[in-house]
Amino acid sequence: MGSFAGHVVPGSLFLVVGVWHIWCTVVRYASDPNSFRVRVWNPVPGFNGKLEYLELYVISIGAFVDMCIELLYSPQLKFFVNGVLNPHHLNDFEHGGMLLMFFVYGIVVLLSEKTSFLPLPEGALCLISAAAFCAEYLLFFFHSTTHKGLEGHYHLLLVFLVAFCLLSVVAAALWPASFPVDLCSGIAITLQGLWFYQTAFTLYGPTMPDGCKLERNEGTCSSHDHVIHGQLLANFQMFGLVFLVLVGVVGSYIIADRRYGKSEFGMIHMKPVDGFHEQL
């Protein structure tokens, strides 16, 4: 089934990257809407360029550490039992494969941005990111079919969020000048990180619904009614997180426009269109 830390660690990575992506997107658009372009990653300014690639380091190192935990620490190097792949840790091996894709994505983008060995356009980098999200989608899609009840419902909602990430990154490659598409990508990643946290606190923490409990590393509910109640609660939690992120996006845009837009954004919408204002 997993663990509290097993959800919080990847949730933290997605949350940090997603919030950073949202902020950088609104700042770039508020600063110069006419020249806005989609970015699959965003550099950190200042510090003499030493932290410029911090986002890519977070993705690469975070994915690598988490992958080592799944592939090395969890099975305690017992990869094979009686000549076959360790049946008690197949779930860890699956997660390790997914994390490998994010690690490859981070390394490829670093090579593309810092060296001349692999110069790739932004659209190609978006599609490499989409490949990582596709691996994650397939993993959790089939996970949601094997997990039942309340746990399965939380996995199913996670599948929808991963699909949102996948579609938004593909759309970014197709519409490289679209501010809404780039913003949706940050929103999707942020929501995925928050949902990992919500799953951890619900299935392994203090917010387990009434009538349900964690027993032998498996979430069980005492009756069908309690399962339904837990699923409805999960839906409400999802709505709450979506509302929270949207409020954060609006607040971020207001701050970015006032700080970096120099009050010019409002004037853009006041420009005459086909002499309309002249006629008033």
Rank of each mutant, 00 (worst) to 15 (best):
V249P: 00
L125D: 00
R258H: 12
D274S: 09
F80P: 06
G46E: 03
F276E: 09
L125W: 03
G211Q: 05
F140C: 09
S35E: 11
I187E: 02
F64Y: 12
V159E: 05
G193A: 11
N34Y: 09
S252L: 13
L15K: 02
Y53V: 07
L99D: 03
A200C: 05
A200I: 06
S222T: 08
Y29D: 03
T115I: 05
V8C: 00
V108T: 13
G62T: 01
W41M: 12
S223W: 04
E55S: 05
F243M: 12
A173M: 02
P87H: 00
K271L: 10
F36W: 06
S144T: 11
G266N: 06
S144N: 12
G240I: 08
E151M: 07
E55H: 05
L203Q: 04
C126W: 03
F239L: 13
L214A: 05
C221A: 03
V38E: 03
H155E: 11
L71F: 12
H7E: 08
V242R: 05
L110C: 14
G106W: 03
E136I: 10
V227F: 01
P209Q: 01
C24N: 15
Y53A: 08
G152C: 02
F142I: 06
I69W: 11
F179I: 11
L90C: 13
E218S: 08
L244M: 14
L100P: 01
G266H: 07
W20K: 13
V26W: 01
C134H: 14
M267S: 12
R258S: 14
E55D: 06
I69K: 06
I228N: 09
M208E: 09
N91D: 15
E278G: 10
A124L: 10
